[in-house]
Every structure is written in C-alpha cells, then in structure tokens.
Simulated scan of single mutants.
Amino acid sequence: MIKKPRISVIVATLGDRVMELKRMMATLENQTYPHCEVILVLQNEQDQWSEVFADCGVLLKVIKIDERGLSKARNIGLEHATGEIVTFGDDDCWYEKTTFQQVVDSYQTGKDVISLNLYDPNQQKFGRLQKIKTSRYLTKRELMSRSSIEIFVRRACLEGDDFHDSIRFDEAFGLGATYISGEENIFLTDLLKRSYRTYFHPDVLVYHAVQPRTTRLTKAQVLSKGPLFKRMYHAPIAFLLVTLFYFKKKQKKLLLEVLKETWTYQPGGEQ
C-alpha cells in the first residue's frame, strides 16, 4: 500500500485571533485530503488552546515560545513538523476544500516547491494582478511577489547534507525582526540556489483577506529593501536595484539612508 504524504501546516500566532484560527481548523477538517497536522507556534503566555480546540478533528501540536519573530517561530515549527510536505499558514487564512489534494497531486508529478494563488472570496479579489494565467515555473524575479501562506515545499528539500546547511527562514527578516518583510522571497531564493524551482498553480487557492493597496511605503519597509536585495543578489546588483527601486517609488529622500543600511548589512543566514 502506497503511503500518503502528510502535510504539516505551520502557523505562527500571537494568540489573538481565536475565531480566525477556528475557521482555518474547520477548513482543514473539511479537506478532501485529510492527512495533515497543524504546528501552532504560540508567541503568547496565555494557555487557552486546550479548551479552544478540545473537539478539533485535526492533529494539533502547540509549541509555546517566549520570543517574538515570525521567521523564528516558523523555524521552530519546522523542527516539530513530521509531514513530508510543509506550508506556512497565517492564523487568519483558510483553504478551499480541495486545495491539499491538488497540492499532493502536483507533488506526485515531481514538483518540489509549489506556490498557490491568494484569493479573497468575500471581496472576490486576488492578492495581486493576474499576470500569470497558466501553471508554470516562476522566474527569480517573480519569486519577489510570493507570500508565505502560498508556499508548499517538500520537507526533504530543506534538510542539510555534507555540503549544505538546512534551509530555514532568515530570522533577520519578517515581522518582529530587524527587517520587517521579504522572508518568503529569501526562503524561495535559497531553494532556487539548490535548484529547487517554484511551480505556480494559478487555479489552486488559499484564502485570505486582501488589504487595500497603498502606494506609500513605511520607512521600515523602505529601509528593509536594500538588505533584502543584498541578501538575495549580493552587493553590486543590490546597490543597482536599490537605486532603481527608490527612484521608481519616489523615495529619493531616503536613498542615502538606505544605501548606508545596505552597506552595513552583512548577510548572516545565507544558504
């Protein structure tokens, strides 16, 4: 009998979205492919989950940590995951009932890293402009538009060997870290450096509320772009991309500051 792969859903949470988590768990219970587990990494001292999920029909592990940081929490979750496939859900995302079966079907055709499509069924809006209409492998540039909750990866691709360290989220990036965004882009780029390409399925959905688009970037977001480019592309290309980005986004007043931040940043989690 062929063993069916388990999907580990790693969810880092501050514990303040109980109703949203219940919605996620309900959609996992209703999956047509039921072989999954949830690794809930709780960055909160409260202990309410045994009562909240007392009747949960999905295998659940709650890991409590004292530190804050989205990438750190996900890395801890990875250490407790037992599934052959892992994904990184937000506590306020949820799934179409056939999503996991479609993911497993794709892996059975030899895919290693998969990106789904983010969709808000309430607003009937996708998370980004639908420029890619058919399933295909993404370019390195296109990895910049992915979000963490869309990623499914074969766990074996993340393990180290005699020549490589394990691939994990760079803990300098992500909410609660020094640089507040870009952790998923680095994660996918590190996989690409090991020849694990990301395959995009535009018709397979993960649900999440789509926030209003804003053209104004916060200063923290602006300052994180230079180190992000340096982490992904190394210094010479990073400085070129930083300059082009800040002229395009009309952030010239911060250009010198971000160039200094890019210069002083030294990649520490590079794979």
Results as ranks from 00 to 15, higher is better:
residue 40 L to W: 02
residue 200 F to W: 09
residue 58 V to R: 07
residue 105 D to A: 14
residue 178 T to L: 14
residue 162 D to G: 13
residue 19 M to T: 14
residue 30 N to W: 09
residue 185 N to E: 14
residue 2 I to F: 06
residue 9 V to G: 03
residue 80 H to K: 12
residue 98 T to W: 07
residue 119 Y to G: 00
residue 214 T to E: 05
residue 146 R to C: 15
residue 20 E to C: 11
residue 58 V to H: 00
residue 60 L to M: 10
residue 245 F to D: 14
residue 205 L to V: 04
residue 97 K to N: 13
residue 99 T to I: 07
residue 70 L to N: 10
residue 22 K to S: 08
residue 253 K to A: 15
residue 111 K to Q: 09
residue 28 L to M: 10
residue 53 F to M: 11
residue 223 L to W: 02
residue 42 L to N: 05
residue 247 F to R: 13
residue 128 R to G: 06
residue 232 M to P: 05
residue 54 A to Y: 09
residue 96 E to G: 08
residue 14 L to W: 12
residue 11 V to I: 14
residue 155 R to K: 15
residue 60 L to H: 05
residue 7 I to K: 08
residue 81 A to G: 03
residue 79 E to A: 14
residue 231 R to A: 12
residue 76 I to K: 08
residue 140 K to P: 07
residue 69 G to L: 00
residue 154 R to C: 11
residue 218 T to S: 15
residue 3 K to D: 06
residue 150 E to T: 04
residue 162 D to A: 15
residue 81 A to K: 01
residue 125 K to R: 13
residue 252 K to N: 09
residue 84 E to F: 08
residue 75 N to W: 05
residue 62 V to L: 02
residue 192 L to W: 12
residue 65 I to K: 12
residue 151 I to K: 06
residue 126 F to S: 03
residue 119 Y to H: 14
residue 35 H to V: 12
residue 264 T to V: 15
residue 162 D to Y: 13
residue 201 H to N: 13
residue 214 T to V: 13
residue 109 T to Q: 11
residue 193 K to W: 13
residue 1 M to D: 09
residue 160 G to K: 04
residue 22 K to G: 02
residue 211 Q to L: 15
residue 67 E to L: 11
residue 236 P to E: 08
residue 223 L to C: 07
residue 139 T to V: 09
residue 96 E to K: 10
residue 37 E to P: 04
residue 43 Q to H: 01
residue 228 L to C: 06
